[in-house]
């Protein structure tokens, strides 16, 4: 039986271990492979997943992201003068086409990893993190889940402090709001610590409840992930995906082995979007998309 909240993505129904492995592998390939095809595939996959999951995509956020990417593209050639194609000179130093293209490439890499991390924070909730590393690193697991809880809490509190300043008719001071926020949270963290201590957080042999079962499906997904990772790591080690920006831009590798790993990576990167499409078209009836908050579904 699968219970799905309306705002939850279907991809997060996978067991935390394969899910975490999947995110780590995709994000690390995006950042470390330094290959434009891999990065573009990853970018399209991330955008597809965000479009399917997020209900808050606005034109404003798209423009904001585009401006952010443009800034990185412009700033890189101002600091890096590497490259053979000189466009013009600034203060006696060349501004090169290679540095501009590398800046654009890096902006896509950063944007893609931000999008994947957004999906990851939605899929990997704190209970999953505790389930995953709670046995091995209990303190780190509690710390991570506390931090992840505190960030949205802080944002909410900050907004409320600003709102109350406005309501009192005082001039809004972001600095004093921040200092109020810090003192509130220092008090709150002492409360949290006391509460945790009184409930026996430090005792040995303390268990935590989790309701995740490692099903054969999850095992298949893990094996699938590991095999594709192995293929891509081998082709990176062999140098099939090598691509260099400096001093001149090399040709994009298109041999058979490189194409094979592109296809493999595409399969990996489009898993969440595919899971989303398949789940919402096959397993969820129309009524759950409407205003019923929770839907039980025979699976």
């Amino acid at each position: 039986m699968i219970i799905i909240m309306q705002n939850e993505c279907a991809f997060s129904k996978i067991h935390p271990l394969p899910l975490f492995m999947w995110f780590v592998s995709v994000i690390s390939f995006t950042v470390l492979a330094m290959n434009p095809i891999i990065v573009i595939i990853s970018f399209i996959g991330a955008v597809a997943h965000r479009i399917l999951v997020s209900k808050k995509i606005s034109v404003k956020s798209i423009i904001g992201n585009a401006v952010f990417m443009m800034m990185i593209t412009i700033i890189n050639p101002l600091f890096s003068h590497h490259g053979v194609t000189e466009l013009f000179f600034l203060g006696g130093l060349p501004v090169t086409l290679e540095a501009l293209i590398f800046g654009f490439f890096m902006s896509i890499v950063i944007q893609t990893s931000i999008l994947w991390c957004l999906s990851m924070s939605e899929c990997m909730t704190s209970d999953k993190i505790i389930h995953l590393i709670g046995k091995i690193f209990p303190k780190i697991a509690v710390l991570i889940s506390l931090i992840l809880r505190f960030i949205p809490l802080m944002k909410d509190k900050y907004k409320r402090i600003i709102d109350s300043q406005t309501a009192l008719g005082e001039p809004i001071s972001y600095l004093s709001a921040f200092s109020v926020l810090v003192s509130i949270f220092l008090e709150d963290s002492i409360d949290t610590a006391d509460s945790m201590k009184s409930r026996g957080a430090e005792l040995k042999n303390r268990t935590n409840y989790s309701n995740f079962k490692f099903s054969p499906k999850d095992f298949c997904f893990l094996i699938f992930d590991v095999i594709i990772c192995a293929v891509i790591i081998i082709s990176i080690k062999k140098g099939c995906l090598n691509f260099s920006f400096y001093p001149s831009i090399s040709e994009i590798p298109t041999e058979n082995s490189a194409c094979f790993s592109y296809i493999m990576f595409a399969i990996l990167a489009f898993v969440p979007a595919a899971v989303e499409v398949i789940f919402w078209t096959r397993f969820v009836s129309i009524s759950s998309v409407l205003n019923i908050p929770m839907k039980k579904q025979k699976h």
């Binding site: 101002l78 000189e86 466009l87 013009f88 000179f89 600034l90 203060g91 006696g92 060349p94």
Partner: peptide, 14 residues
């Protein structure tokens, strides 16, 4: 400002 404060030159001119 950075672009114009630094000495701007085309490749040929440089």
């Amino acid at each position: 400002v950075v672009v114009f404060a630094l000495n701007f030159e085309t490749v040929g001119k440089h």
